[in-house]
Design a protein around this nucleic acid. Structure first.
Lengths: 246, 246
DNA sequence: TACTGTATTTCGCTA
DNA sequence: TAGCGAAGTACAGTA
């Protein structure tokens, strides 16, 4: 009582027997295909946390890199999941079809139990993304390194990701008077967290340079009130700038 | 040159004409169904950032709440997406099928252009999740509120999410000697960020209580070296604890 | 709507 | 592998 189709890069089964689903899942993942399961399932997760999802119709996506996603009709995020690198196995445990995903470090298990599968498909999708993206913090950094005077006349970058006791500073340099400067970049509007982050770096550099007063400059398109207050309290500066999005 | 199937809650078309895809997408989303498109597409995104994804075979999921996901064979995260609340529209722009998603605040557009669709399906999936989860920060909070002596003998919680000039403190209370205490909870291992966060709250409370030295306690399963150093430097304390996962 | 903090965050990079 | 920070983070709660 099912129907099968096999095209170029599509395999589909309607209301497959569990045994058929098992075969298709194993074969497809082995061939680096993406598997799509739609049917009634319950989901148990145990690992960093623990969760239970009662039975219901959902879409389950299994990727050849080990990632698994359980999607409902709502939300961008899966209701349950397993990241890439996990090991996906499946078996029939009458009357259920079990799709289980395990990973280590951290030890996590995702168990999906289907009462029935309405539809299962295997697709031959692209592996690599080759996505180009603009408007990132990285691009903001490039811009400032290329035109440091845009930040401040006389500013001279000395290093990027400059290590300190508190972590790496986005851009480290000296101002016109030779004073050390830590520059923290953000691609979007910033709040208290970014101010604290810059403050940590400046404190660490202050310990490195006991004779000078290290400056800290936060570069972002905009700041919240609390973020601005925190900057002010810590004697940090703000410069308005944003990544190029041309 | 296509094949159609219609079961309980599954509609599927193989190599549909663009016009058929448009009809199915509109009908299915209107009926609160989830739409699955597999085929060769390119993707353009413009909004908070901007991105271009060249043509390739991918899985596109459109949800009735407006969410859209573009998945490759790798990664848990979609290569492109649009969050719930967006408006999904589709049309034929010969020779392509365009699926476009717009949202406001922020203004963002996702444009998916299919050269061809290999397979399109519509599934009737569950709307609500009804997921129960254990091991969250919220549960760690409940535990400590129920057994405050577990944190420290004589500790008396006074409020949760207690507002300060720097933001809400997870648990605010007084120790055995009546000194104000800010407690910051984390469900997992913590680093510098959590220490800074607690420090901000303690500073704000210090300003509120000029006559007392406010204490700050970070509660988490474990701390990194830098996190511990930062706590020490700011005279903050650490208590080992984790959310119950029974 | 904007702000703040959480998340089974994921992801990428580096030591 | 662990630590640290970025992300078009998404998501929830609140003012």
């Amino acid at each position: 009582m099912y129907q099968s189709c096999d095209r170029m890069s599509v395999t589909a089964l309607y209301r497959p027997a569990h045994r058929e689903s098992v075969d298709l899942i194993r074969t497809a993942l082995n061939e680096k295909k993406l598997v799509n399961l739609f049917g009634r399932c319950r989901v148990s997760y145990d690992g960093r946390a623990r969760s239970e999802l009662p039975a219901g119709n959902r879409l389950v996506v299994c990727k050849p890199d080990g990632a698994t996603l359980v999607h409902t009709a709502e939300g961008q995020e899966p209701v349950n999941w397993q990241p890439p690198g996990a090991t996906i196995s499946c078996r029939v445990a009458d009357p259920e079809l079990i799709v289980e995903s395990q990973r280590t470090s951290p030890q996590e298990t995702l168990l999906i139990a289907f009462a029935y599968v309405e539809h299962i498909t295997a697709y031959d999708v692209e592996m690599s993304a080759s996505l180009t993206i603009e408007g990132t913090e990285k691009q903001l950094k490039q811009t400032i390194l290329k035109h440091p005077e845009q930040l401040e006349s006389g500013f001279e970058p000395r290093a990027t990701e400059r290590e300190t006791a508190a972590g790496p500073v986005d851009i480290y340099g000296r101002d016109a008077s030779g004073t050390p400067v830590a520059v923290e970049l953000k691609r979007g509007r910033v709040g208290p967290e970014a101010a604290s982050q810059l403050s940590r770096y400046v404190d660490a550099l202050d310990a490195e340079f006991p004779q000078s007063d290290v400056r800290g400059i936060l570069v972002a398109p905009s700041v919240t009130d609390r973020g601005a207050n925190l900057l002010h309290k810590n004697n940090l500066e703000y410069q308005q700038a944003q990544p190029p999005t041309e």
